[in-house]
Amino acid sequence: MYAQYVARRFGMMLLVVVLAVSINFLLPRLMPGDPVEAQLNQLLATGGGGGDISAMVDAYRARFGLDQPLLAQYFSYWRSVFSLDLGVSLAAYPERVSHAILAGLPWTLGLLGFATLVSFVLGTWLGGLLGWPRTPRIARAFGSGLILFSSVPYFLIGMVLLYLFAIVFRWFPAGGGMPFGQSAGFNWQTLTAIAWHGTLPAASIILAEIGAWALGMRGMMVSVLGEDYITLAEAKGLKPRRIFRWYGLRNALLPQLTKLAMTLGHIVSGAILVEVIFSYPGIGFRLYQAIQANDYFVIQGIVLLLSVSIAIAMFILDLAYPLIDPRITTGRE
């Protein structure tokens, strides 16, 4: 039963990946304009040159394989995806796209993974408490105050934090992932430096996200508390703490986990604006630079990474869901 379920979900994931790769291949080629020509024109304009560039365009086309028929390009694109060769950056020419992604990925995964998990745990817990009638009024008021933050965009919170704690009080660095010139190594000094640099970006994301998690959870909690099994649990004389945790929270959690998996799938693209504000060396910052520089291959590479990782996150969620909600596997018949 479970094996069949896993196979089905795995097939679904493969389908999503194939579609994502195909769309990622096709879309730039359907767009009007020729990236090579545009790039060379820009290069010439900044270099002060001019004149006929058609020979250069042809040379570059041959270099990137753009002169071949579409189907041949498609298959060679698949080959390069399998060998993790995503081409070279146009803006920072000899650098390979895969290298650019690998350089930024650990920063982004660390920052957003941490911030997302913390805001998920705190927000879900807070939302559960807000939906629980026995929660003291003071806790309720405090929680509602935190929810207010979710109506402020996170980059705005980031700018306020940056101004207050990096410029006015000077408690935290204003940008970067590490002090300049310090080489990364797996030691205490590196870890504290990373944590110190990551505090403000992480705090701005957490403050902005907590409210969203809490709001969703509160709504779910309120609707779960109206269920018959809560009434029976109370009639059974169970302790309020047990009803809250195992009858309320445990059931209200299910939709939150779906949302968490989606969010975790998205984190590889980074929190672009936060990374830009704090000049954080993650994928988001790199994507921002690539878009500004019309760096097609980098954009394409990051988008591909994004779609594949969402597909994988959903697959992992599908695997975990039967453990969390027993109705999932057998509930189909």
Partner: peptide, 19 residues
């Protein structure tokens, strides 16, 4: 509750915790 007086609920279909 349940020690001295217990309740058999109306909505049997939805009175048990699904998880």
């Amino acid at each position: 509750r349940f020690a001295e007086m217990s309740l058999v609920p109306q909505g049997a279909m939805s009175s048990l915790n699904p998880v």
